[in-house]
């Protein structure tokens, strides 16, 4: 069965990077993947989102309308995408920033205090990696080792010194689920 994700948040929270890392990792594991951003004024209005599909089968529509997983980094994204989740789907949310609990009872929910963890690690910027770690541990859609391998491809060269920090953030997010 295809994993169909929506990843959303403010511009600058690194939601596109999460999507790209998953796509690269899926590709390197020999799976079919697609990644598509929302583009245009929508992305200039302060929120950003992308759709990612990872599947053993050929991918039909790359546009996700009923996600199996929604990763939301801010309140507007939670409000928008929680209702769209498929029954039984997974909602991972950044509980450091989102001041409400999910309303649905027919979905799985993982709260990640991503900004708090990132701050403990010394950089707000890796909050996205914390939620990614939680997602990987909860679903095993791709191996976290594959994702770690892809950091060099997705991060610009000038940020490669931050790869160990990113991996640590992924691990911290994962621990939250595994604990």
């Amino acid at each position: 069965m295809a994993e169909e994700l929506t990843i959303a948040g403010f511009g600058g929270q690194g939601v596109m990077v999460i999507g790209q890392l998953l796509s690269y990792a899926g590709m390197h594991e020999g799976k079919n993947v697609s990644w598509i951003p929302a583009y245009g004024p929508e992305m200039r209005g302060g929120t950003a989102n992308c759709s990612v599909v990872i599947s053993a089968e050929p991918i039909g529509s790359p546009i996700v309308t009923e996600p199996t997983t929604a990763i939301v980094m801010n309140r507007p994204s939670m409000d928008r995408f929680e209702p769209m989740l498929r029954p039984g789907g997974l909602l991972i949310y950044n509980s450091s920033l989102i001041d409400r609990k999910p309303e649905r009872s027919d979905i799985r929910v993982i709260a990640v205090p991503a900004v708090d963890i990132a701050r403990e690690l010394g950089s707000d910027r890796v909050a996205n990696m914390c939620v990614l770690g939680a997602y990987l541990a909860a679903t095993h859609v791709v191996a976290s080792e594959s994702v770690a391998e892809c950091l060099k491809e997705v991060l610009p060269a000038r940020r490669h010194n931050l790869i160990p920090l990113n991996i640590e953030a992924i691990n911290r997010g994962a621990q939250l689920v595994e604990a």
Binding site: Q20, S23, M27, N32, V33, S34, W35, I36, P37, Y39, I59, P62, I63
Partner: peptide, 10 residues
């Protein structure tokens, strides 16, 4: 179209 132009695939 915009989807094919903007999407990433292997």
């Amino acid at each position: 179209d915009g989807v094919l132009g903007q999407m990433m695939e292997p």
